[in-house]
Simulated assay, not measured.
Amino acid sequence: MTDEHIIEAIGKTRIVVRDGRVVEVGKPLIRSCPLAEKFSCSVHEMTEEAIRENIEERMRAFGMCNPARQVTDTSDFVLFGASELISSALRNGLVRSAVIVCDGVGTVVVTAPDQVQGIGGRVSGIVETSPIPQVIGRIEGLGGRVLDPATARIDMPAGAAFAYDLSLSPAAVTVATADDAETVRSAHPDALIIAVHTTGVSAEEARRLAAVADLVTACASAAIREEAGPRALLQAGTAVPVFAMTPLGKRVVLTKLQETDRQVLVSGKALPAPGGREPEPLI
């Protein structure tokens, strides 16, 4: 089997890593992102060279897409990132497991907050991946359960069903499509559904995600801001906001705020609330 991993990152740029090397960097869909400028290997100008350097730095720093992949971490990279919010929900008993995606592993069910952060904290959208036995073994050795070790397939509804079959419910489940969100919600009404990787979604897709997800990350999506923002109960952040669409989603964000020692501003106003720089352009 070919060792190949397809990622969409940094402006939803298509990146292919094959046999430990970045072999393809596509064209980014946006020009700039304030979050990308804060990466440890920052991307101020979205050129092929800068994006390649960022991915290669991740591969060196924590082993992304290679057998040395680190799978635990306790550091927050952003306050309201999906992995940070899920980790907090696990620590505080709001969910019992997390169904997420790891490069070299595919869909995985984990119960430890440091595994959620180690797997998801520094990785963007994984489109396809192939199995890396060393990483699979590392996750399983820490108690994680891999949906399909033979193929490392990515299937979030199947991952959610796997978690519930293991009696690890309720589960937090990340989804990137409305189809997956609706399937998970129908099968598991108590799941915490987090919509991620939303840059470029259509207005219809945004409406469907806002209707069933508990938390929706806005990324560089104009449609998510327009569809989810006015319906949200709470907005976390302004440059790249996260919208809490349900009481459970709101509770997850407020629980995360209780944990942080950062200064925060809480203000009642109509949503979505702009402020500061946003990704450019919103698409």
Rank of each mutant, 00 (worst) to 15 (best):
R58C: 12
P189V: 12
A172P: 01
P241Q: 11
A223T: 00
I6H: 11
A158L: 08
P67S: 11
V43F: 08
R231Y: 07
P149W: 10
S124E: 14
L248S: 06
G268Q: 13
V216L: 10
E205N: 07
T129Y: 05
A232K: 01
E140H: 11
D76M: 13
D73N: 09
L168A: 09
R58K: 14
M59G: 03
E182S: 13
D165G: 12
P281D: 10
Q70M: 14
S221W: 04
A50G: 05
V99D: 02
A68R: 10
M59W: 06
D3N: 13
H188R: 10
S42I: 02
R185K: 12
P34S: 11
I15A: 04
V123E: 03
A213E: 03
A9Q: 09
E280D: 14
V196I: 15
A213L: 07
V212E: 05
A160F: 07
G229L: 03
G121P: 00
R153M: 12
I30R: 02
C219G: 08
T47N: 11
G276L: 11
V216I: 12
L271F: 09
R145S: 08
S40Y: 14
V266W: 12
D261S: 15
L90K: 00
L271K: 11
V135D: 01
D76V: 11
S75E: 15
V252D: 03
A206H: 03
P133V: 10
I193A: 12
F39G: 00
E45P: 00
E226T: 08
A232Y: 02
A187H: 08
S267E: 15
L85Y: 01
A82V: 10
G93Y: 05
G268P: 02
G143Q: 09
T129E: 09
E37V: 01
D148L: 04
G121H: 06
A176Y: 04
V216H: 07
F77K: 07
L79F: 09
L271P: 04
T198N: 12
P113T: 06
T107P: 03
L271T: 01
L271E: 06
A187T: 03
E57D: 15
A236R: 02
E226A: 14
E24K: 14
G143R: 05
P133N: 13
G11N: 06
P247R: 15
V78D: 14
R225L: 06
F243M: 06
V23E: 13
E48I: 02
V184S: 07
E182V: 06
V252H: 08
R69I: 00
D114Q: 09
A152L: 05
D103E: 15
D165T: 08
A89P: 00
T174N: 13
A270S: 14
I119D: 04
S42A: 15
S186I: 05
H188T: 02
K12A: 14
L192Q: 01
V17S: 02
G143E: 06
E37T: 01
A9T: 05
D179Y: 15
V25C: 09
E280Y: 09
N66E: 14
S97E: 04
S221V: 05
T2H: 12
